[in-house]
Design a protein around this nucleic acid. Sequence first.
DNA 1: CGATTTTGACCAGCGC
DNA 2: GCGCTGGTCAAAATCG
Length: 587
Amino acid sequence: MDDRSLGLSIATHDPSKSCFLHPIFGKIPVNNTAAAACKHDIMGRVDSDRILINGGDDRVSPLQTHISEKRVVNEMNFFAHDHKDKLASDDQETSSVDHVKKESASTVLDADEQGIKLDINTGLNLSTTNTSSENFNIEYKPQENELAVLQADLNEMNVENQRLRGLLNQVNSDYRALQMQLFTFMQRQQIRRPGNTPVHEMSNGGKVAVARQFMDLGQAAMAEKDDQLSHSSSEGTRSREFSIVESMEMQKINGDNNNNNNEIVALDLEKKNNINISEREARQDQDAAQSAAGWCSNKVPRFSSSRDVENASQTMSMIRKARVSVRARSEASMISDGCQWRKYGQKMAKGNPCPRAYYRCTMASGCPVRKQVQRCSQDRTILITTYEGNHNHPLPPAAMAMASTTSAAASMLLSGSMPSADGIVNADFLTKSSLPFSPSLASLSASAPFPTITLDLTHNPNPNPSQFQRPLGQFHFPSPNNLPQNFVTMPQVFGHTVINNQPSFMGLLNSMGLEQPQSAQNQMPANDTISAATAAAITADPSFTAALVAAITSVIGNVHQNQNGNSNNNTTPRNSSDKIEHMKNSL
DNA sequence: CGATTTTGACCAGCGC
DNA sequence: GCGCTGGTCAAAATCG
C-alpha cells in the first residue's frame, strides 16, 4: 500500500492552479495520474464534480482507467444531471469550478478565522511537490524533518496495518470454520428431525433473520468449498462474498421447501431428507469433484443420489438464471458498477425497440457473472441492468457495493418469501423492517422466465436541490402508497449490505448513484472481508465521517435530486451534525 | 498488437 | 417438426 493511501481526501480540481481544492485540507497539488484523470474530467465536462477519494496511488489501475478515462463517457454518471440542476438553480454561480472554489476557499477561510491550524496530517504526502502555486505552501508545507517523521509514522502504521490484516484474516477463517461446524450440525439435526421443520420457521426472528443466517452460512459454505477447490483448482483465491447461488444452495440444503410457490428452490427435498446421512457424506467427495468442473463448478451442492445429482444439475441451471435487475435512470449505455465487463452480444428483444446488450465480467478469467443491459421500452431514460451469477474472484469495493446489494436482494428473493406463480409477493415479509433504512423499491417477478428481483432506483423522491440536505444514510424512497403498480416495498436491501458485512458506505454511495471513489479501490485489499472491515474502520472515524459528509455536501451539493419522485423527508435532519450522525449510524 | 466491440450464425428451450 | 425467442459464440472490425 502506498503511504499516501492511508489518507482519504475529497478534492475538486482548481483549473487555475495545478492543485485540488479540498474542503477540509485546502489545496492539494496534482501530482499523480489518478488526479490528472480527475482533472481532465473536471475541466472538460459538465459532470466534473465527482468525488475523488484519492488514495494517491500513482498507478492507475485498469479499473480506474476503465472508469475515469475510457468508459466514463459511456457509463452512467449520476452526477451530471444533478449538477446541471444545481447550476440552473444557483444564479450566483457562474460555473461549477467557481462554485467549488468558493466553497473550498470559504472553508479554508473559516478555519483561519477560527484560528484553527490547518496542519492536518492527511497521510497523503501530497503537498511536498509542485510548490509553484503561490499562497499555497504557506500553511501546508511541512518541515523536512516533520516529513521524515510523518513518513516513518506512516511506515509504522503500514506495518501495523499489515499485522492487523493478517489477524483479521485469521479471525475470519476461524469464524467461518465455526460457522460451518454450526451449520453442519444444524443441517444434520434438520435431516434427522421427522417433521423437518424448515429453518426459517424455526427462527423467532422471522425470515429476515434467516436470510441473514443464510448469508453468513453461505459464506461459511463458500469457505469450505474454497478449501475443496483449492485441491483441484489453481484459481486460488475466490470471493467469499455471498452470492445468489450460495443463497439458493444453502436454502436447498436446509430443506427450504415450505413454500409451495418457490420456483427456485425446487429440489425434491422430501427425497433428500430421506437420504441416509452416511450415504450423503460418503458422496461428498464425489460431489466435490463434480463441483470442481464446469463454469458453475463451485455451485453444485452436495446431493446423495444420482437422481439428486441430476436434479441438482437441472436446478443449478435454474439457479444460475436467478437474476437481480436494477433500474436506474441513465443516458449512458451502461451503469458503472465497479466491475469490468466485456460485451459479447447484442440482440433485439421482443417487445422492446431497444437492443439488449450482453456483458460478462472480465475481472477474472472464467468469472460466470453476466449482465444484460437494456433500456426500458416505456421510458428510455431508464436503464435496466440485470445481473446473473456470482463472481469467482475478489471484488473491489465499488463492485462489492453493487454485488452486495444485488446479493442482498437475491437473498430476499430466496429467503422464503418467494413470489407466487402469479407474481404476488409476501408483502408481510417485505414490509417488515426494523433497520434504519427506508425501504427501497423492489419487485419480485415470478412470471419472468427466471426468478427475478427488480430494484428500482428510478424513483428518487428528491424533487429539489435542497433535498440533498438529508443525511446520507437516510434515503427516502417512495412511500408504499406511491409505488407503481406491481411493485412492493422491500426493506433491507441495503440493510443486508450491513448484515452481510459489506462496506455499507460503498453501498450507500452506490445507492445514491454516486460513483465509487476510484482510488478507494486501490486502498482496499483484495479480500472483500478485509475490505469491508477496512472500510468500516475508516468510515467509523468521526473526523473522516464529518469531513466526508462536509466534502460531499460541498462538492456535489444537490446531487441526487434529479428524479421525479415525490419527496417525503419529514424526518430528514437538516443540519450538518444530524447528517453526520445519520451517516455514522448508517456506516 | 492486444483488448474490446460488432454482428451474423448457431444453439437450446418452449409453445403450437 | 416447425417457428419463435433468448442467449451465446466467434470471426471480423475497431480502438487505444
